[in-house]
Amino acid sequence: MPTLALTLVVMTHNEAANIARCLDSVPFAAEKLVIDCGSTDATCEIARAHGARVVHQDWLGFGPQRNFATTQSSNDWILALDADEYLSPELTAELQRRLPEVMASDAAVGTLRRRTMYMGAPMRWYRPMVGEKMTRLYHRDRARWRDVRVHESLTWDGTEVRFDAPFEHLHNPTLVHKGLKVLRYAELKARDWRQKQRPPRMWDCPLVFASSFIKDYVFRLAVLDGWRGFVVAQTAASYAVYKRMRYYEMCVNPDSVDMAAELLNRHGLDR
């Protein structure tokens, strides 16, 4: 298959179960680059066996880690995927057809649509998991990831190109995986708030829970996905409240920051 002057970038930590599928789904990338922050499983060996160049980098936070990856790319155009994501055959064909023209233009980024599997089956109605818009294709000189610990996004100067076919996301395999991710993401977000000295606002937690649940369950159509829709809406609302409670704890008990970091590090989650 003809290759394009494009680098596929994947950030990993213990992704042996996913990395091969992710890398193999982008056969047209001239370079496949894995930025690993210290996997203890076979992630790196599998990545190399599937054509990737592996670079170790201790965890910097999501935004800084992605910006580091940009500096390691051999090409100006970069496609960023997570290890549990992969291109559908339809998107592979669309990218092969349209990318040469996009890469020759002054475009800065390309926005893709992400389709998600949840609890072992695809979500059919819940908007964020059916056709969530994700800006994952970018020119290294025209776009940059925000330097935040979590929930990173691209900022750019120039035009945006949108693609129609979806890429696939194998969401957390179980609610246990989701719960651990919630703990990790909430901790990172609370640390960001602490660094910015944001005032804690515990008084708005009931309103935050109610508004978040209603937004996802009703307006984002989770209700139409049955009990799985209820679970995803409840989980999102609980996360919105938990990160505020955790930040409040950091403010009233600063010692909890180091104690939590030690516990999360013990379980490989403080990264």
Rank of each mutant, 00 (worst) to 15 (best):
M119V: 01
V55D: 02
F163E: 10
D82K: 07
N75E: 07
M202E: 02
G51Y: 05
A52T: 04
A29Q: 03
R144V: 13
V231E: 00
V232T: 10
R146N: 11
L95H: 05
V26M: 09
Q57P: 04
M129T: 01
V54F: 10
A236W: 04
A240P: 00
R97D: 15
D192E: 15
Y247H: 12
R149H: 09
T92L: 01
P89C: 00
M119L: 11
R146G: 08
M129V: 00
M119P: 00
V176Q: 10
G179H: 06
R198F: 08
M250N: 10
T135I: 05
Q234F: 10
H171M: 03
Y217Q: 02
H169K: 04
N253Q: 15
T71I: 04
L33P: 08
V130M: 02
H169L: 06
R66Y: 12
C37T: 10
N75V: 05
A80E: 07
F28S: 07
H267M: 14
A233T: 01
E152R: 14
S73K: 01
A83H: 07
R246Y: 13
C251D: 01
V231S: 00
R144K: 14
V257I: 15
E85M: 05
I19S: 02
N67K: 11
F230W: 12
P2Y: 08
P100A: 06
L188A: 15
D164H: 08
Y86W: 13
S39V: 13
K178R: 15
V55Q: 06
A210C: 08
A108R: 04
T7E: 02
I46A: 02
D82F: 05
R144G: 09
S88H: 02
S105G: 14
L23H: 07
D76P: 05
R144D: 09
A222G: 00
V148A: 04
K133N: 02
R198M: 14
Q234R: 09
Q195Y: 10
Q65K: 04
E262G: 03
Y242F: 15
H139Q: 11
R21A: 11
P254W: 07
Q197S: 15
G51M: 02
G63Q: 07
E45V: 14
V34M: 05
M123L: 12
L188P: 02
Y86K: 02
W156A: 06
T159E: 15
M129G: 07
E101V: 12
D41C: 00
P166K: 00
Q96S: 10
A47Q: 04
R98A: 13
K178A: 12
R53Y: 08
D24R: 12
G63W: 10
M129S: 03
A107D: 03
R191W: 09
T3R: 15
Y138M: 08
L263K: 14
R201S: 10
V232C: 09
L8F: 04
T70S: 07
H267A: 13
T174W: 13
D225V: 05
T235E: 04
R266G: 13
V34Y: 03
I35L: 15
A93G: 06
R140F: 07
R201Q: 14
E90M: 02
L99A: 09
H177V: 14
R113I: 06
F68E: 03
F68I: 05
Q57I: 01
D106I: 00
E45K: 14
P173D: 05
